[in-house]
Design a protein around this nucleic acid. Structure first.
Length: 424
RNA sequence: GGAGAGAUGGCAGAGCGGUUGAAUGCACCGGUCUUGAAAACCGGCAUACGUUAGUAGCGUAUCUAGGGUUCGAAUCCCUAUCUCUCCGCCA
């Protein structure tokens, strides 16, 4: 949610910035609502004030045993007026909320303006894509050869976009997860959390998945949502909180499955682990002082990069352009890992500074010693990393000519000494 | 799932139709006293919105949330959510 003050003071500039993101704000409609709101609110509050005054004097008159009928007559007409004006005001507020809940965050000034992923800008690359003296196989083939990855069984169980991993490959995924968590906890200063995988609509609203993207999430019969990312439960841990300044920054990590409908991506990445309805992810979330959020974004991105460095997987970092950013983000870095079989980089992490956008929705604030009023915190989230896609990247980058897969050095301690994954 | 009890300010806890935004205690902040500290005493201490040049003043709302009764609701009624106790079931 944007700062309503900003919408009032400088709506022209806001509309321009939203246009950069491909969002068309109806300025005239908003200003009309705002004007109505102002008139109605002033009217309602003054009526309420009158009514309260008279009601109090009724109490006093009664206590003294005076006749209260004149006062009752006086207040009678206020009641109807008040009811009407209250209802109108509520309607205007509801209309305004329908706008504000659907308006995306504003991009930071240094974010490149652009339409879609074509306009994203590469920031840096790390590592050299490996060269192979044989024809590389993709992870689907490698998985089939080993017999440890089974899309058909998954289709029988659940449908498309699911997978069954077994034995050394299942273990390798667990090793990756463990390694990521341990690194974030031991080297990067995050605290580990275990969180619910089902959340209510308030939580989804707070982090910005609702109301606009309801179709992307799985909803349960009793109205809960399967989390599309651990960002939702982790970030909402501070909802409706007023934190003390010295509690910041809060750095949280959690490993969870993530569930996504992937509506609207029909035909895209239909094979393999790239795009699944269910995938595991290790998530990082930071709750920070507003002045430090940009530095925190750089730090968090480097934390995700450190995982890839340790795994010796080549990657590049790009900054998303205005048109490609997520709803809640003010600035986003994507990290893309080298995928040999596709001869390109594919997204494996997305790190965003949401500034106060989510904090305002969920009323997450802190009290700083130098300011009387509580102020909104800044929230950041980043994948550290998407585990399924990391598994895919390891499989493809570490493949041998015979289809076996070398286990990266840092994972071997988690694999009980297994150094190469062969076949069933 | 069944039966019961409850949800009040940072925390504890009173109030149970009328000057209650809410007693009291604790915590916190400022002051007096003191060489300093403690104690004691004095004072302060919610949030949001509106109006406004204003973090001044004034107004409005908020005692879990949403509805209702009433001239007037923290207090009465309904619904939802959550918590606790007991029983049942269960990894």
């Amino acid at each position: 949610m944007l700062d309503p003050q900003l919408l009032r003071d400088d709506i022209g500039a806001v509309a321009q910035k939203l246009a950069d993101r491909g969002y068309d704000l109806d300025v005239k409609a908003w200003q009309d609502l705002e004007e109505r709101r102002k008139a109605l609110q002033v009217e309602t509050e003054s009526l309420q004030s009158q009514r309260t005054k008279i009601s109090k004097s009724i109490g006093q008159a009664k206590a003294k045993g005076e006749d209260i009928q004149p006062l009752l007559d006086q207040v009678a007409s206020i009641g109807d007026q008040l009811e009407k004006s209250k209802a109108d005001l509520q309607q205007v507020f509801a209309d305004m909320e329908q706008v504000t809940l659907y308006v995306p965050n504003l991009a930071q000034d240094d974010v490149p303006v652009g339409q879609d992923e074509e306009d994203n800008v590469e920031v840096r690359t790390w590592g050299q894509p490996p060269s192979f003296d044989f024809e590389v196989k993709d992870h689907v083939d490698l998985g089939a050869m080993s017999g440890f990855m089974d899309a058909e069984s998954a289709a029988t169980l659940s449908g498309s976009r699911f997978t069954v991993l077994s034995r050394d490959l299942a273990r390798l995924q667990r090793a990756l997860t463990q390694f990521m968590l341990d690194t974030h906890i031991n080297d990067h200063g995050y605290d580990e959390f275990y969180v619910p995988y089902l959340v209510n609509d308030q939580a989804m609203l707070g982090s910005g998945q609702l109301p606009k993207f309801a179709d992307d999430a799985f909803i349960t019969e009793d109205g809960r949502f399967l989390i599309p990312t651990a960002e939702v439960p982790l970030t909402n841990l501070v909802s409706n909180e007023i934190l003390e300044a010295d509690q910041l920054p809060i750095k949280m990590t959690a490993h969870t499955p993530c569930f996504r409908r992937e509506a609207g991506s029909y035909g895209k990445d239909t094979k393999g682990l790239i795009r699944q309805h269910q995938f595991d992810k290790v998530e990082m979330v930071q709750i920070v002082h507003p002045e430090l959020s940009n530095q925190a974004l750089e730090d968090m991105t480097s934390h995700a990069e450190n995982i890839l460095k340790a795994l010796k997987l080549p990657y590049r970092v790009i900054v998303l352009c205005t048109g490609d950013m997520g709803f809640s983000a003010a600035k986003t870095y994507d990290i893309e890992v080298w995928v040999p079989a596709q001869n390109t980089y594919r997204e494996i992490s997305s790190c965003s500074n949401c500034e106060d956008f989510q904090a305002r929705r969920m009323q997450a604030r802190f009290r700083s010693p130098d300011q009387k009023k509580p102020q909104l915190v800044h929230t950041l989230n980043g994948s550290g990393l998407a585990v399924g896609r990391t598994l895919l990247a390891v499989m493809e980058n570490y493949q041998n000519a015979d289809g076996s897969i070398r286990v990266p050095d840092v994972l071997q301690q988690y694999m009980g000494g297994v150094k190469v994954i062969n076949q069933c």
